[in-house]
Design a protein around this nucleic acid. Sequence first.
RNA 1: GGGGACGUAGUUCAGCUGGUUAGAACGCAUGCCUGUCACGCAUGAGGUCGCGGGUUCGAGUCCCGUCGUCCCCGCCA
Length: 595
Amino acid sequence: MELDLLGDRQRTHHCGELRPSHAGQKVFLAGWVDRRRDLGNLIFLDLRDHTGIVQVVLNPAVSREAHDQGEQVRGEYVVGVEGEVVVRKNETVNPQISTGEVEIQATRLLLLNEAKTPPFPLDDVARTSEEARLRYRYVDLRRARMQRNLRLRHEASLVVRQHMSEHGFIEIETPFLTRSTPEGARDYLVPSRLRPGHFYALPQSPQLFKQLLMIGGFNRYFQLVRCFRDEDLRADRQPEFTQIDVEMAFPRREELFDIIERLMEKLFALAGVKFARPFPRLTYAEAMERYGSDKPHTGVGLEWTRLELPESASGALKAAPSVKVLRAPEGKHFSRSQLDKLQDLAKASGAGWFSYVKTAGEGFQSPLAKTVGESAVASLARAAGMTAGEILLLIGSKSDGPSTINARHLDEASDVLRRELAGRLRPTPRGAWNFVWVVDFPMFEYDEKERRFTAMHHPFTSPREEDLPKLETDPAAVKARAYDLVLNGQEIGGGSIRMHRRDIQQRVFKALGLTGEKARERFGFFMDALEYGAPPHGGIALGWDRIIALMAGESNIREVIAFPKTASAVDLMCDAPAIVDPEQLDELGIQIKKD
RNA sequence: GGGGACGUAGUUCAGCUGGUUAGAACGCAUGCCUGUCACGCAUGAGGUCGCGGGUUCGAGUCCCGUCGUCCCCGCCA
């Protein structure tokens, strides 16, 4: 097929912008053939570009040559169209597209490139396997959904830069080739050619650099930055992902929260979403007690409360006197088998026992009645404040074993049950945007496998000042000045006020089991920096891909990333990772182990 | 590392209890068609049933292994 050259021609308009007001204008358009309708002596082309679709008419009475060219054209061919904008007759208007009142009478059709038949349909309704979409991502990106999502992402990044700049934050780039640090996620490593046997690590986040920028006197920093973590993937986790990284000197937590809340307000306005500020605050302890989760979907309702069992009941049930109870509506819809399933879920996630009370007419019905009697059940139901039609779920912890672990399992069970109920009773409310700040996280959690404390947030998070004395005596009780931002049950950001004093940083390292020597080896440069006038500072990092996905109504962050990887961290399009030439390995002094 | 789902035409899928030549829709090709817009009509091409092994007279179907994709747990400060 003979192709035409674009030459010096320039588009006069884009497809999606043509309106009756353009009638009579001579235009030159270019784009892809979305569809061809060949009626024999009359051919219609739907011409598509990034702005939309416009209908082109190839009429031999207007141009025999253009019509002849049109016969060769197929879907996804790249063409240029010279012609005139004409208003369509009333009966031929297409109200489904924005340009439906006009069409282009083509005087010339340039064939700029041919195209193989696409590997899958490009219309937005057709479902296609993600595997095919990722393999031919460059084709998939032409689809309206990806065009829409990536444009939204661009608009959102403009909002971020504008907003942060208005609040005195400046964007500074930090290195991608840096050094591996212990703690946290597995690093992606990059071998050094100039120092064989040595490796750079790609940053899990620019944590230390942004703190060093504060020490460097920049006052306020932000960055839309790529981060890398070599861990197993999920729908909301990619091996490389983007954060809005934020840090400020002399921070007041409430000011930071306000800046971020206003940012969220502006961002979600792009998606036409409004919500109230300030966002509610919830301590970690409260969140665990009421929802069993440190990232609760607060919009669902369904909160757990504590109920003290009457002494007689506690004895008869051989249960802890304090149980968690949850009142759910529409109790009559819970069949015996569904309740059995809830019981299985509760037990599987570590609850010691599970029971329920249903309302039945004036009274109550419960398997507990057999053990403790009708009247005890009734008083229990009244104590929980049950009203007609509700069902009351009760869970208690195991009575043997370490009580802290049992308590954690009970929280876990309350989270699992609550999410199960939410899924059944109140599928995520549409149009509800439930932001919540979760604050006062524990500083450390105990790692059973490694038999030591690890930082719950990260090892640069400052403990609350009043907890400093407990660093050595009772690490488990130390609360951190850390916070998470949660939206509809998803963690979309987290941060903390950092340590700016070397002495405290050293005590925290010690609590983490990092000996002086090891700390010096890994973090020596940073410990030194703390000694040269480090100001109080703190910040936050927000999960950019997750935020865009929520704004775009996508449940998978791959839908808002141009070239994402699969769940096994493979790029299906370019087939990465891949084997490299032996010479390349040789230069790096690397030998692959055979097993 | 563990669990679950899936893998059949270019795409999305059907294919029952193992049985003759593996189907549908869309797409694609060819022809006809001057007002279509998911154009229509007619004809046609298109299959390593992911891959390897096994059971069987016979495997898309059953078994074992393996690869790939998706979801979840562990993991991800």
